[in-house]
Deep mutational scan, measured.
Amino acid sequence: KPRTPFTTSQLLALERKFRQKQYLSIAERAEFSSSLNLTETQVKIWFQNRRAKAKR
């Protein structure tokens, strides 16, 4: 499956949310993903990858 090209504004929103909170609840993820026009899976995986990056 092809890589999702996130827009700059989506990335800024994702990073801002990640700084507030590294783990989103299912409800938060649902609301946040629809506000960004992304799927919940895209947001879930982005947060997983971002947490992995933060550990490195």
Rank of each mutant, 00 (worst) to 15 (best):
K1T: 10
K1S: 04
P2H: 06
P2W: 01
P2M: 08
P2D: 14
P2V: 10
P2Q: 11
R3G: 15
R3E: 15
R3Q: 14
R3F: 12
R3K: 15
R3T: 12
T4Q: 09
T4G: 06
T4K: 04
T4D: 14
T4N: 12
P5A: 12
P5M: 06
F6Q: 01
F6K: 01
F6R: 03
F6P: 01
F6G: 04
T7V: 06
T7R: 01
T7I: 06
T7S: 07
T7Q: 06
T7D: 07
T7C: 08
T8K: 02
T8D: 15
T8I: 07
T8A: 13
T8G: 06
S9I: 12
S9R: 07
S9Y: 06
S9K: 09
Q10F: 07
Q10Y: 00
Q10P: 00
Q10L: 04
Q10M: 01
L11W: 03
L11Y: 04
L12G: 10
L12V: 07
L12C: 10
L12S: 06
L12I: 04
A13Y: 11
A13H: 05
A13R: 09
A13N: 07
A13C: 08
A13L: 11
A13S: 06
A13I: 14
A13E: 07
L14P: 00
L14C: 04
L14Q: 02
L14S: 00
E15F: 00
E15G: 01
E15M: 00
E15W: 06
E15P: 05
R16A: 15
R16P: 01
R16F: 12
R16D: 13
R16I: 08
R16N: 11
K17Q: 07
K17V: 09
K17C: 07
K17T: 09
K17D: 00
K17S: 05
F18L: 01
F18C: 00
F18H: 03
F18S: 00
F18Q: 00
R19S: 15
R19H: 11
R19I: 09
R19M: 14
R19P: 01
R19G: 13
R19D: 08
Q20F: 06
Q20E: 12
Q20D: 13
Q20I: 06
Q20T: 12
Q20P: 02
Q20S: 09
Q20K: 09
Q20R: 05
Q20G: 07
K21W: 04
K21T: 13
K21Q: 13
K21N: 11
K21C: 15
K21G: 13
K21M: 07
K21S: 14
K21E: 13
Q22L: 10
Q22D: 12
Q22I: 09
Q22E: 13
Q22G: 08
Q22P: 14
Q22V: 06
Y23W: 10
Y23I: 10
Y23H: 12
Y23E: 15
Y23C: 09
L24Q: 06
L24H: 03
L24Y: 01
L24P: 05
L24G: 02
L24M: 09
S25G: 08
S25R: 02
S25W: 02
S25K: 05
S25Q: 04
S25E: 11
S25F: 03
S25L: 05
S25P: 11
S25T: 11
S25Y: 03
I26E: 14
I26D: 15
I26V: 13
I26R: 05
I26K: 07
I26Y: 13
A27H: 09
A27Y: 07
A27M: 13
A27V: 08
E28D: 06
E28A: 01
E28R: 01
E28S: 03
E28Q: 05
E28I: 01
E28H: 02
E28P: 00
E28M: 00
E28Y: 03
R29D: 05
R29N: 15
R29E: 15
R29Q: 14
R29G: 12
R29V: 15
R29K: 04
R29F: 15
A30D: 09
A30M: 13
A30H: 06
A30S: 11
A30L: 13
A30K: 06
A30R: 10
E31A: 06
E31D: 08
E31M: 03
E31N: 03
E31F: 04
E31P: 04
E31S: 09
E31T: 07
E31H: 02
F32Y: 01
F32T: 06
F32R: 02
F32D: 01
F32E: 01
F32S: 03
F32P: 02
S33K: 03
S33Y: 02
S33P: 01
S33H: 04
S33Q: 04
S33G: 12
S33V: 03
S33A: 09
S34Y: 09
S34H: 13
S34T: 06
S35R: 08
S35K: 13
S35L: 07
S35P: 05
S35N: 06
L36N: 07
L36Y: 08
L36T: 06
L36H: 13
L36V: 09
L36F: 09
L36R: 04
L36P: 00
L36I: 12
N37R: 08
N37G: 11
N37C: 12
N37K: 07
N37F: 03
L38G: 02
L38E: 01
L38K: 01
L38N: 02
L38R: 02
L38W: 00
L38T: 06
L38S: 04
L38A: 07
T39G: 08
T39Y: 05
T39P: 10
T39W: 02
T39D: 13
E40L: 01
E40H: 01
E40Q: 03
E40A: 05
E40S: 05
E40N: 03
T41W: 09
T41K: 03
T41C: 13
T41F: 12
T41I: 05
T41R: 04
T41D: 14
T41G: 10
Q42T: 09
Q42W: 04
Q42F: 02
Q42Y: 13
Q42D: 14
Q42R: 04
V43N: 02
V43Y: 01
V43R: 00
V43Q: 02
V43C: 05
V43A: 02
V43K: 00
V43M: 01
V43T: 02
V43W: 01
V43D: 00
V43L: 05
K44D: 15
K44A: 07
K44C: 12
K44F: 07
K44W: 09
K44L: 12
I45D: 15
I45K: 06
I45S: 09
I45N: 13
I45T: 11
I45C: 13
W46T: 00
W46C: 06
W46S: 03
W46R: 02
W46N: 00
W46K: 03
W46V: 02
F47A: 04
F47G: 02
F47K: 02
F47H: 01
F47D: 02
Q48N: 06
Q48D: 15
Q48W: 05
Q48Y: 08
Q48S: 06
Q48T: 06
N49S: 10
N49E: 14
N49D: 15
N49L: 06
N49P: 03
N49I: 03
N49M: 07
N49R: 05
R50M: 11
R50K: 14
R50E: 13
R50Y: 01
R50W: 03
R51L: 14
R51G: 11
R51T: 04
A52N: 05
A52I: 09
A52P: 02
A52Y: 05
A52E: 15
A52G: 10
A52D: 15
A52C: 08
K53T: 13
K53V: 13
K53F: 09
K53S: 12
K53R: 09
K53M: 08
K53D: 14
A54D: 08
A54H: 07
A54S: 13
A54F: 08
A54Q: 10
A54E: 15
A54P: 10
A54R: 05
K55I: 11
K55G: 14
K55L: 10
K55A: 12
K55V: 11
R56M: 14
R56V: 14
